[in-house]
């Protein structure tokens, strides 16, 4: 059978002779490699996904899949009698050239690996990367890039080396988070009354604001036109969207209802006749 196939077509590369039987066998091995890789990946996903995080299981699955495929290619090439040592020497020189050309690709690849090992962020996390002015949810971390979904619904692909070397602000590690809002009241308003009013409004209107730790309100500045108050409150990390749209409206409405003025910038001009 093999001899028959070889009699049909034979060719030479780098002094090595290859027959049609070798091509057919190699293709069969490669196809089998793909099938085995797929089966291993599926078995791994079924067996280990429940005990691992989604992010880890996905990446280990990818590593197994591509690892088996690469291994299959190496087996096929070596079994065909191709001497890889010559390729390695040639590849050494070629590698330097390629290395310079694909510096950023390799950098992204290794950054991706380090991101998977160190895990400063993982799939589903809400993160902010201040250097890039990006705030959103991590959709995926691939070998070369991290994909985030911003809150406006758009997605952003960021090369892994940029993510790895940037400051990352994570919003997921803690259950509770604090937010603060500043508001200025007029100098003629009673500060204690304003604080009491705002606390009452928060308690009655913002059901997702935590009652413990209690919301805190401090006078932070005696500014040019107003007495500035800082209002700090805690909430569950998943409830920001329930609080944010109402927060400033609740504060303003409560101050308006109690006759407490939020002043415009103003300047007092005194005219001396003499």
């Amino acid at each position: 059978m093999f001899e028959f196939l070889d009699s049909i077509y034979t060719f030479e590369i780098l002094g090595n002779s290859f027959g049609l039987s070798m091509i057919v066998t190699s293709i069969m091995f490669i196809v089998a490699g793909f099938i085995v890789a797929g089966v291993v990946k599926t078995i791994f996903a079924k067996k280990f996904t429940p005990s691992l995080s989604e992010h880890t299981s996905k990446n280990v699955g990818k590593l197994l899949y591509y690892g088996i495929i690469v291994l299959t290619f190496l087996i096929v090439v070596t079994s065909a009698g191709v001497d890889l040592s010559g390729l390695l020497v040639a590849g050494g020189i070629f590698g330097v050239v390629i290395g310079f050309a694909t510096q950023s690709v390799v950098s992204n690849l290794f950054s991706g690996l380090f991101l998977m090992i160190e895990k400063p962020l993982k799939q589903g996390d809400t993160v902010e990367i201040p250097e890039m002015d990006v705030l959103g949810t991590v959709l995926d971390i691939t070998m070369f890039s991290t994909i985030l979904r911003k809150f406006d619904g758009t997605t952003m692909r960021i090369p892994n080396d940029k993510v790895f070397t940037s400051r990352i602000r994570g919003f997921n590690p803690t259950q509770a988070r604090r937010t603060s809002v500043s508001v200025g009241i007029s100098y003629s308003s009673n500060t204690k009354n304003a604080i009491k009013t705002i606390k009452h409004a928060i308690k009655h209107n913002l059901e997702y604001v935590l009652q413990k730790p209690e919301p805190e309100i401090h006078v932070t500045d005696l500014a040019d036109s107003s007495v500035n108050l800082e209002i700090m409150m805690w909430y569950h990390r998943e409830h920001w969207g329930k609080i944010y749209p109402q927060l400033r409206d609740v504060i303003k409405s409560s101050l308006d209802a109690n006759g407490i003025e939020i002043p415009f910038p103003q300047r007092v001009v005194k005219i001396h006749n003499n």
């Binding site: 803690t174 259950q175 604090r178 308690k203 009655h204 935590l210 009652q211 413990k212 805690w234 569950h236």
Partner: peptide
């Protein structure tokens, strides 16, 4: 409605999220 509120027992990192 004031009985439908939340609170945190413990620290923000390790605390327990509770109805309050």
């Amino acid at each position: 409605p004031l009985l439908s509120r939340f609170a945190l027992y413990g620290s923000p990192t390790d605390g327990y999220f509770c109805k309050y």
